[in-house]
Write a protein that binds this DNA or RNA. Structure first.
Lengths: 125, 125
DNA sequence: GTAAACTCCGTAGATAGGTACGGAGTCAAT
DNA sequence: ATTGACTCCGTACCTATCTACGGAGTTTAC
């Protein structure tokens, strides 16, 4: 059993962040004894770690809530995962196209001897 | 010479967006004749297209302003470009790592016969 | 026993890049 | 001359994810 500060420290989160997740419905407000302080047991740690991991995978908080609520339904979870996967893949493709363009631009910059014009600026014009 | 609405339509931007760019210092407020309406000549079109293209390359509005102000300085522009390039490359790498993880997860989901557990949920726990 | 550290709550602010609104004035077409 | 479309300005609102603040009560350490 620990108070919010200990929990936050343990997980590397801010106290405000945990209260925020509570407000957003990701976690439940725990029992509060006479003094009004939140008191957490160990199960909350798993839940918050779940949230952090899913977030790191690029799920939004809403999606995380969704994941948590579809607890056993593998098909639904898989479908959300596949959706996320295709989003990630198209983001990768976009960025790779960008990478090529910017590479070309900076290359032409490096080969530029005309100090009165920058090929990057010119190509954007 | 055109008013803001025509200009916006021509570029596929919102009127408010142009006013917003003006407030942010990306473009200058043009002369306004007796009626108080903004009147633009063709040079503004180039400037706004520059902004749109640079934005599409992943530059923030602040960076776009920066690019526009370093007008001829090729070395500076190149350095901003290289910086952006390495940001893009590390984003790509991050996403590719993510892609692998999510692929593995959805695969294990597809091969799952145990309806009481979802491997994705389990792996996040 | 007192001072520091912790907690409570609700609300405001930050970030980026817009988007929307309201009320008033102006312009263009019929 | 009237109607509808356009413009003005300032400000508020939007998404997402926190982060900070203020004032009051509580717990802990010395």
């Amino acid at each position: 059993m620990k108070t919010i500060g200990k929990l936050a420290k343990e997980l590397g989160l801010g106290v405000e962040t945990i209260r925020f997740y509570e407000r957003e419905g990701l976690i439940k407000q725990p029992q509060k004894p006479q003094n009004g302080y939140r008191v957490y047991d160990d199960s909350i740690t798993k839940q918050l770690q779940f949230i952090c991991k899913a977030k790191a995978l690029g799920f939004t908080l809403k999606e995380v809530a969704s994941l948590m609520s579809m607890d056993g339904d593998c098909a639904k979870v898989e479908s959300l995962g596949l959706q996320k996967l295709s989003l990630i893949q198209s983001k990768i493709a976009d960025l790779q196209r960008l990478e090529v363009v910017i590479k070309e631009m900076t290359n032409s910059c490096r080969n530029n001897n005309d100090q009165s014009h920058c090929p990057i600026i010119d190509s954007l014009k």
